[in-house]
Nucleic acid binder design. Structure first.
Length: 119
RNA sequence: CAAGUAAGACAGGUGAUCGCGGCCGCGGAGCGUUUCCGCGGGUGAGGAAAGUCCGGGCUUCACAGGGCAGGAUGCCAGAUAACGUCUGGUGGAGGCGACUCCCAGGACAGUGCAACAGAGAGAUACCGCCGGGGACGGGCGUUGUCCGUCUCCCGGUAAGGGUGGAAAGGCAGUGUAAGAGACUACCGUCCGUCUGGCAACAGGCGGAGCCAUGUAAACCCCAUCCGAAGCAAGACCAAACAGAGGGCCACAGGCUUGCCCGGCCUGCUCUCAGGUAGGUCGCUUGACGCGGCUGGCGACAGCCGUGCUAGAUAGAUGAUCACCCAACGACAUAACCCGGCUUAUCGUUUUGCUUGUAUG
């Protein structure tokens, strides 16, 4: 991804969980914390409650694809952790995309001029 | 054509745009190794990748010794690196048949268990049947004999009833007071012997009237095999680090195959505080795939030709559109690698064979 890296280490996840702000909807939970690096770092977490290995990989790909296609409209300098809830197992791409954008609006992550363009 | 049976094959495809992990090439940043960026090419999960139930390769540790445990397998022969797998047989069970299924050693080494029912379960007389005695009644009749009855006594019996998974070989006859392998034929069992077979075993002949249930997925016995842990194995490179205080004095801890004996090493323990876990290799060419020939009933083996087909390290296959199609495709994501087993699975399709019907 052009402007982003991924979160990898367990302690990075724990830091965002403890210090970040969170919003949730039916399929996803999103934690956000500013990192001061000028780029975004994204971590996707799918637990075994969601499904077996195939289902978990599919959910991960849908979330990553949704983020990738809208990467340009995000603010920069954030650590974002997206946790999939069990209901996400049977969801298609379009629903996943709308769920992600909904959480972004709640966090006010979208760059201001894009926000005005939509309204 | 219908029903069945056995063995396979495939696991959506094509095109376009965006996106991801390795690899190769080119260009740029960079003194250079490393690294980063861009462009192009090519490549990128399964039949079960799953469960982790067996077996092996590989790696490290242990390879003074003795003893005791523990685990697995279980008809025979073969295949294999090995196996609990596979192949071919034997025996048993099911099916008209093609064919399928079977945790298939030993119960005179020992121990345990066998509920309930039933009279009785390494044993039995409850009902029944039969004989003798006694009592009572009756007929004939004169101190006997015949018949009948019994809340009586003694004995015989395993035919019949009933219980049970199982009642001491089965069935038919002879026999008998009634019965019984007591005796006889056939079948079964056991023993001996001959023939065939490497063997499991099969068949023939002869003999023995048949002395004793089941369970070994109860302990156990016998035979064979098994050192342990696992790629977070392990090897190398680089970097960081911090110890302090108290208690105890041979108690203890670690290693040595699970335990014991024995052996080797180390001071040990508690409290408080602090710090790092980055990279390279292992890592994919292998008991490999495909085709052909030869040997073998077969599993498989040998030879020749040919091919290279993921190697990530928080972990790469996705999204959108169009068309094909009956179908949003079912089950499901490699993590060191192989050989098997087991389980899950929407469907499509090929071939052999069996039975029935029709036609010739």
């Amino acid at each position: 991804m052009r402007f982003s890296e991924s979160l990898k280490k367990n302690h990075q996840f724990q830091f965002v969980y403890k210090n970040g702000k969170s919003y949730a909807n039916r399929y996803l939970v999103m934690y956000v914390k500013e990192n001061g690096l000028g780029i975004n770092r994204v971590g996707i977490s799918v637990s075994k409650k969601v499904g077996n290995s195939v289902v978990r990989h599919r959910v991960t790909r849908l979330v990553r694809e949704s983020y990738r296609l809208h990467e340009g409209i995000f603010n920069s300098g954030l650590d974002i952790v997206i946790v999939a809830r069990p209901g996400a197992a049977s969801v298609g791409y379009e629903e996943m995309e709308s769920a992600l954008l909904h959480l972004c609006k709640l966090h006010h992550l979208i760059k201001v001029y894009f926000y005005f363009d939509e309204t």
